[in-house]
Amino acid sequence: MRIGELVKHIDGKVLCCEECLDSEVVYAFASDLMSDVLTVKCENFLLITGLSNIQAVRTAEMSDIQVIVFVRNKRVSEDMIRLARENSIVLVECSCTMFKVSGILYGLGIKAVY
């Protein structure tokens, strides 16, 4: 599914890299623990997290993550947006819980990484 379309379904707010919204997302992973995210072997996936700090974006950079959806109303800082722009990572703020976003995306056919 296209990133832009998926963001509409979760009522998300796109904060940067709008030029990437036509890219397709196939897989997603949900975790607040970056240690777990770093063990995911596949590339190009969407991360759902409630951890809003610079290391979440760094982890995305190293893990080849295309999109981060920050759930539970977590706010994203300017530093995070700057780093995401450098690496073409779409950042999305969303007021839903992690469970709800995961459920919606799973229902839309987005696959689990394992």
Binding site: L38, E43, N53, I54, Q55, R58, E61, M62, S63, D79
Partner: peptide
């Protein structure tokens, strides 16, 4: 913690420029 990952970020750029396969780049930088 703000700068943690700086070295990995630089190395990722270098390996991409060298056209190293993405899955191998990921293993090195992770």
């Amino acid at each position: 913690f703000v700068r943690a990952g700086h070295a990995s970020s630089e190395v990722k750029k270098i390996l991409k420029q060298l056209n190293v396969e993405p899955s191998l780049v990921k293993r090195v930088v992770v």
